[in-house]
């Protein structure tokens, strides 16, 4: 456990970014579970478990974190592309989706994109823990 705590302490900001983004999607998962749509919550739990297990076992951390960061970047890019498409193509416009891209919606997408890029960059620089200890 010492190694795991050491890993978290030495990568404090990365750990905060991971937790914040996981919580963001966990909230989304719970929100949909309450509306009888359970797959989003299962997907988030699976990804969170994957990351947690990799940290706990100190194996595959870089891969797990990279997968999460790619998920975040893709999520944000798809949302931003949707917004651009809807702003210019009237036939694509849908009130329900369009009005999720107010300033708050746009900023949250940009924020997740920044988190995704930050986590991706950090994952590349992660020094692997000493597995022989």
């Amino acid at each position: 456990m010492k190694q795991q705590l050491h890993f978290i302490k030495t990568n404090k900001y990365l750990y905060i970014a991971l937790t914040a983004t996981l919580l963001f999607f966990f909230r989304k998962g719970i929100q949909y579970a309450l509306l009888d749509s359970y797959i989003p919550l299962l997907v988030i739990i699976a990804l969170a478990l994957f990351i947690w297990v990799s940290i706990y076992l100190l194996k595959g951390i870089r891969l797990a974190i990279k997968i999460w960061s790619v998920f975040l970047i893709l999520w944000a890019l798809i949302k931003l592309l949707l917004f651009v498409a809807m702003s210019f193509l009237d036939e694509l416009s849908n009130s329900h989706i369009y009005h999720q891209f107010g300033i708050v919606g746009l900023l949250s997408s940009i924020l997740i994109l920044c988190f995704g890029i930050y986590i991706f960059r950090k994952s590349r620089k992660l020094s692997p823990p000493n597995f022989s200890d």
Binding site: K28, D36, I78, K79, H96
Partner: peptide
């Protein structure tokens, strides 16, 4: 009301109706 989207992929992307 609040209502889920037509598939879970859309649910992950956007908020409920």
């Amino acid at each position: 009301y609040r209502f889920a989207n037509s598939n879970f992929g859309v649910d992950l992307l956007i908020e409920p109706y």
